[in-house]
């Protein structure tokens, strides 16, 4: 019973803090859906691959969302035809490279190495993985079929059942042009609520998993592991995954580990945690194919592991 209460408290703690961010992300996504057309997007997106990917990595300044809000938003952006590399870079970088997360990192660590490293390594990891994904000969196949309706007209994969969907999109675009402002706002909210329910269930399940882990697995077993240059990094990555705290506040949490853990491991926590954790993994599953979700976990994991170990061995602890 005690355990159930502890579980419920931690679960609600994560949910109450993350749900407003998901609601905001869904709102942004609903507004994008209704107010930004494919043509608008095509005008903004750079033609060249690397340029587009870097823009994707920096787009958090335009849409300041954390890892809960970015998932519904990136789905809508794919819908608007942004390249895969740009979308993936945005997905991974936005939780770190946005004004809110940077401000909280600044508040926790001041203007120094940690802030610069978090920013630059976050961008590096996100854009590299974005570029890697663009090597896929069929880039659109990474998206879970059916997750993005408007792809129906745009991709060969989805062309099996494009008819109805395309017709509806056309109709919707027609509606967009015709409708007065207040109706378009209502449409945005309606899209936002669809996104909220779509992603919300993964947030709930992810928060439950995280709370369950925290109730059952002892945190001290984790922290006992970590002062070695490699084991400390692994430990902090695992901790980031399990804790599933919002990227806008994780800098404060990492402070608690600063004296007991290596610098490289703290950096890995701050770069890996926002990209991947239990709840965002659950939400990825709603947008991407399973295999791609695995890559989206493993690639940031390996890259931040290497970065953490490199810093520990070469820059000192």
């Amino acid at each position: 019973m005690e355990q159930l209460t502890t579980f419920a408290t931690i679960f609600l703690g994560i949910f109450i803090e993350a749900a407003p961010f998901l609601l905001l992300g869904s709102l942004a996504s609903g507004l994008v859906e209704v107010f930004i057309s494919k043509d608008d997007m095509a005008r903004v997106v750079p033609r060249n691959l690397i340029g587009a990917t870097i823009v994707g990595g920096m787009m958090g300044f335009v849409f300041p969302v954390c890892e809960c809000g970015v998932v519904p938003l990136v789905r809508r952006l794919f819908n608007k035809g942004i390249p895969i590399s740009m979308g993936v870079a945005f997905l991974l970088a936005a939780p770190i490279i946005n004004p809110v997360a940077l401000a909280s990192t600044y508040a926790a660590y001041g203007f120094g190495d940690m802030l610069m490293l978090r920013f630059s390594m976050g961008l590096l990891v996100a854009t590299s993985i974005g570029l890697l994904f663009s090597l896929n000969p069929r880039p659109l196949s990474i998206l879970r079929p059916g997750s993005i309706p408007a792809f129906a007209g745009a991709s060969p994969q989805a062309s099996q059942k494009p008819h109805k969907a395309t017709k509806h999109i056309e109709k919707m675009n027609l509606v967009q042009v015709k409708q007065p402002m207040h109706q378009r706002l209502q449409m945005s909210l309606r899209f936002a609520s669809d996104d909220f329910f779509d992603m919300g269930k993964y947030l709930v399940i992810g928060s439950m998993l995280a709370a369950g882990m925290q109730t059952v697995v002892s945190q001290s077993t984790l922290t006992d592991l970590g002062s070695g240059p490699v084991s400390s990094v692994l430990t902090m990555q695992l901790l980031a995954f399990v804790l599933s705290v919002c990227s806008t506040v994780d800098a404060f949490i990492s402070l608690a580990f600063r004296n007991t853990f290596t610098t490289g491991s703290i950096l890995s926590f701050l770069v890996f945690g926002p990209m991947v954790d239990i709840k965002s993994t659950m939400m990825f599953l709603n947008v991407f194919n399973r295999k791609i979700v695995l890559y989206l976990i493993l690639l940031p994991f390996l890259m931040t592991l290497l970065i953490g170990i490199f810093i520990n061995l070469n820059v000192g602890i």
């Binding site: 059916g146 997750s147 993005i148 309706p149 408007a150 129906a152 969907a165 509806h168 999109i169 109709k171 919707m172 309606r190 899209f191 669809d194 329910f197 779509d198 919300g200 269930k201 709930v204 399940i205 709603n286």
Partner: peptide, 17 residues
């Protein structure tokens, strides 16, 4: 119009919330 509803807009997924 909200196409993605087909596959998983079911009772279970709404109740999770």
């Amino acid at each position: 119009e909200h196409g993605h509803d087909h596959s998983h807009g079911n009772l279970f997924s709404v109740l999770v919330l």
